[in-house]
């Protein structure tokens, strides 16, 4: 991400952003990018509104234009009430919204977001998702990294799953789920009886702690079989497969630290 932003030197290969080489056209590229960093780096010496104006100056945007744009962005991000409040007084969600507003100050051709909703409560997260989707609807290109698979599923048209710096798979969220997890998942408590029955049926299953997961396109048949075996001794649930299932299947369940 840092290499795309022309902040870190590239480690190898070729890298072009908006058709320009990152080594020779840093300023041009950066003037067309909007960056939402993972870490909050708003300017604590200024109010919400002044943060946008000061940032606009780094892009060389004329004062008059910057003021107009800042007002629009505060309205868009629902921060008008906090216009003259110092950054310290903003909630986590407001800070994230302001960082997104700040990234839009130069009407970027490409918006780069690094974990845009990390550490936010559900309300704040949904508001940000809504704003990002409306940006998409206006035809903006967003590049986003996230560990929240639900976020990726909701926002991404094209998704790349990476692990240890390697690209594992690539595609639309729906395609990836269909390909790598099937349509549905049956979850059942892990008991010897259940395992015996599954082996008998020749159905593949994954272990996830105390729960067995069966990836299948015929969830109801499998569930019916299992219910017969368990006779209410163990709970059986059927749910649609999600991106999280794909991710865990591809990258394994061991902790990566």
């Amino acid at each position: 991400m840092k290499m795309i932003q022309c902040v870190s030197p590239k480690t190898g290969g070729t890298l072009e952003v908006l058709g320009m080489d990152v080594e020779t056209h840093q300023r041009e590229i950066k003037s067309h990018l909007g960056v939402v960093p993972q870490e909050t780096n708003l300017d604590p010496d200024f109010s919400t509104y002044r943060n946008l104006l000061v940032y606009a100056r780094y892009f060389g945007i004329p004062q008059r234009e910057a003021e107009k744009r800042a007002e629009e962005l505060l309205a868009f991000m629902q921060l008008e009430e906090k216009r003259d409040v110092l950054i310290d007084k903003l909630s986590g969600g407001m800070k994230r919204r302001l960082i997104i507003a700040r990234a839009l100050i130069n009407t970027p051709e490409l918006l780069i977001l690094d974990e845009p909703t990390i550490g936010l409560d559900p309300q704040a997260r949904h508001l940000i998702w809504e704003k990002l989707r409306s940006l998409q609807a206006e035809g903006n290109t967003l590049v986003l990294t996230t560990h929240y698979l639900e976020e990726a599923e909701r926002l991404c048209d094209r998704l790349v799953i990476m692990d240890h710096g390697k690209i594992l798979v690539e595609g639309t969220p729906a395609d990836l789920i269909r390909e790598h997890a099937g349509s549905d998942i049956v979850e059942v408590e892990r008991t010897p009886k259940v395992i015996a029955r599954l082996d008998e049926l020749g159905v593949n299953y994954d272990l996830a702690g105390d729960v067995l997961q069966i990836f299948t396109d015929r969830p109801h048949d499998v569930a019916r079989e299992l219910l017969e075996v368990c006779r209410h001794e163990a709970a059986v649930t059927v749910r649609p497969a999600t991106l999280e299932d794909v991710f865990l299947r591809l990258t394994g369940r061991s902790l990566r630290e």
Partner: peptide, 14 residues
């Protein structure tokens, strides 16, 4: 602490 430099170098300022 404020990461102000990081914020600025994401813009055309070197």
């Amino acid at each position: 602490y404020q990461k102000t430099f990081d914020a600025i170098i994401a813009t055309p300022v070197s």
